[in-house]
Design a protein around this nucleic acid. Structure first.
Lengths: 344, 344
DNA sequence: CTGAAAGCGCTTACAG
DNA sequence: CTGAAAGCGCTTACAG
């Protein structure tokens, strides 16, 4: 994991070549205004000629500063995180940071390792999308982190730090409201693991919407599964074997919903007419899938931009109050939902 | 873009606490075998107690080495690159590197900047997916790079360095062969810009397949567009207005194909029966799109893993011969292609 | 506006 | 196996 660097041109060599001191050359690379135009030009010419490359690492070491940010997500093959990262990068590049990116694949141990590695590389701050199941040790380590950190997408209970996310309860409530307005009363909740805080928040929204409409919550309509297409396909199969099957399903996220609709195709069930399906996230594919998916937009790109913004503020001011930014979700009604056929 | 670090525990403090010299402590963090078990334990305990974090930046500076790799892609919101990056990371983490990730959005100027920034951060090597249109200046800069570099996905003409890609000509040829076998003879080529090397390679495959079947190439069936869904939709519209319209279309990539099929839906044309559509890349969505897309798998994840592997080899041995790894594509026949209806 | 000296946190010879 | 000294490439006071 190591490579030797051969003769890199140093600031000293540039200074010698231009006939000035190292300190002067240093002021010039850092764009100090207190240098005469003549010497500046002379030194810049020398840099050009010698092919000088600024050593930001050495500079950061001496000045006890950092120009890097660590970003940790659970899976960047997931289009949701691709968009999140686009937002983060967009904002961070504007502010002149360079980013270390890493994936945990939702493993607590991996998250621990990654954070350590980033600390060893002296990152100036961290944006963390926590794994779904943070161990107490892991949380302890994060707390002891002496660098600015903001969490995003998922919140870690009892971790006092900046956070950006969306109002999950509200989002789910909007989705269930929409189904209820279409005459559905037996609405399954498919996918996700009830241990995770992400699941619990969605469940709260699910219950709240039922309560508001004075509908009972039937726990036998709740089917857990991994948050994947396969998981979705599998829960759909199970739920349709229920003695009093649902007429609509709320899926943990779009991925699960796609799995559900693929299995429906095999079972010759038409989304929207035979069974209404709603997802969560509004990934790009939700619009182009056939039939198009009714889902809740959760603004990953905005979350990313806001997280980067908060981190920047935190870095510039360590002692400011913690800030939480909770974006409001939005419902997109498409072809996968419709009137309850058993209702008139 | 700068943050001040407060009291980080140093190796000196650890050494003092444990009652050894700094050199001894340094040997211990680097797992030198020439230290007695007793002192090792003592020092490790001190590190634990003081909360020591290794400063890899300082170590790299002193030892003139690097533990970071720069990875530059054109767009990581594109699922193709998500998979590529998954491959890269998988391999690189195994070898103990930390990665700087950046996106060029296919801008030559941005690519230049990004490479400079990475050099300033003393990366030990670079994996570059070049922009489609590399300026000569840009290529010159890359050539002068004093760090190991491997290009992937797209090749830069006349740039002598390691490269990993797939056999694009062959892939397109397989796609066109498949259409010809189904009785198609008027096959449009939709999307992409003819300036790019990626387009030219596909075009070569397109021509080769026609030649092999002794079919004429009708240049009026070639429609360029941006490599996006919108671009695809637009070229489909134009191509269907042709006085002697095609019965099949080859799309620059899957994204273009999705755009084509969406526009077909609006025009009430059925993919596979009214018009055969084939894509390129086999992104995940190709299988789940309705109707599912016949396309050519281009193995982005494998390309990523191989690129990381080549870079590692290059770092360990600067003077080895340049290596080119060209993976073989694979055709996936699905529902979007079928017999030519005008042929019997 | 410029120069000589000290130091960021580590590793590298080199003596003991 | 351990310690004292020098140095990676830069920046930071501090004199001039």
């Amino acid at each position: 994991m190591i490579m030797k660097k051969s003769g890199r041109v140093t600031l000293q060599q540039v200074a010698d070549h231009a006939g000035v001191s190292r300190a002067t050359a240093s002021l010039i690379v850092r764009n100090s205004p207190s240098i005469s135009e003549a010497t500046r030009k002379k030194v810049l010419a020398s840099m050009q000629e010698l092919g000088y490359v600024y050593d930001r690492i050495a500079a950061n070491l001496r000045s006890q500063s950092s120009s890097t940010i660590g970003v940790v997500v659970t899976d960047f093959a997931n289009p949701y995180y691709s968009e999140f990262l686009t937002g983060v990068h967009h904002q961070l590049e504007k502010e002149g940071y360079t980013v270390f990116l890493a994936t945990t694949f939702d493993s607590d141990a991996k998250q621990d390792n990654l954070l350590s590695t980033m600390l060893e590389h002296r990152v100036g701050g961290v944006i963390l999308c926590p794994v779904s199941d943070n161990s107490p040790e892991s949380i302890g380590k994060i707390l002891k982190l002496d660098v600015p950190i903001v969490t995003a997408v998922r919140e870690i209970p009892d971790l006092p730090c900046d956070y950006v996310g969306i109002n999950y309860e509200k989002g789910v409530e909007m989705a269930i409201d929409h189904l209820i307005e279409n005459g559905h009363s037996r609405i399954a909740f498919l996918g996700g693991i009830s241990d995770s805080s992400a699941w619990k928040k969605r469940y709260e929204g699910y219950v709240a919407a039922h309560k508001k409409a004075r509908l009972p919550v039937d726990e036998s309509l709740i089917f857990q599964s991994p948050v994947t297409r396969e998981g979705g396909a599998q829960t759909l199969g199970t739920s349709m074997k229920h003695e009093d099957p649902p007429t609509a399903v709320f899926c943990f996220n779009d991925l699960v919903a796609f799995g559900v609709m693929q299995r429906m195709r095999e079972l010759n069930l038409q989304p929207g007419s035979d069974l209404s399906v709603v997802g969560f996230d509004n990934v790009l594919e939700a619009e182009t899938f056939y039939p198009s998916l009714t889902t809740v937009e959760s603004f990953p790109k905005h979350i990313g931009m806001n997280a980067a913004g908060l981190l920047h503020k935190r870095i510039k001011d360590h002692i400011r109050d913690q800030e939480r930014i909770i974006l409001e979700p939005e419902l997109f009604v498409r072809a996968s939902t419709g009137k309850n056929p058993l209702y008139n």
